[in-house]
Amino acid sequence: MRRFTAALFLLGLGVMIAAIYQHIDFSNTAVNAGQAINAVAAEETGAANFVTSVVLAYRGIDTLLELTILFTAAMIGGMVLGRRRVDAPRDPDAGFILRTGADLLFPLLLVVGLYIILHGHLTPGGGFQGGVILAAAFFLPLLARPGITLIDQRVVSLVEGLAGATFIIIGLLAMFDGKEFLTPLLDKGELGALISAGTLPILYLAVGIKVGSELAGLLAHLAEAEALD
């Protein structure tokens, strides 16, 4: 009976979506805020990657908030999972291949992650993508050698706090200058050069470090969670 109701509901939903789809108008997709941004972004922010301009400049506050969501989720994750008991059973040690692979990959992942973060205003990528790679670099050894304390949770919480604070403080600096919060500062430089786009690369570095430390912390918490019986 329940499945029948569910199926009926889903069928109705499908019909509704089809009806809505019939009414969607595809003709005016060229007139939007994004195209307006494409027209002025190079001049206003100095970043060659316009998605970066949107993420860090035009919609910078959204990015700050999503960092805060990650921060909050990591904090709550730590709170919910709690500390593990000392005598709790551990996952078995990984094999030789994974251990060697983790050792080899660790420096490579660090370099790639940092590269992607630092070139976020020029090429596809940026703080989020690079940050995830950084987190993977720190998480891989944890998979290879369960129980290893590669990252001290206190250091992680310090780093993530400071990285987030850096983002906000850069925003506040603009206010001291009499501008609005998060207005890009510094010289915009030459379009396409590594050192260009003013404060955007610094913001992306803060984002990358924060995302990396949040995710690494969160994954470490999940890995540390006691194995279920």
Binding site: E160, G161, G164, A165, G178, E180
Partner: peptide
């Protein structure tokens, strides 16, 4: 410039730094 944004930003900043402050 309006100080109103501080209503939003200052609590966030403090929340980020609270665990570091706690250590001091």
């Amino acid at each position: 410039m309006s100080l109103l944004v501080l209503m939003i930003v200052l609590p966030l900043l403090t929340a980020f730094l609270l665990s570091s402050i706690d250590r001091l």
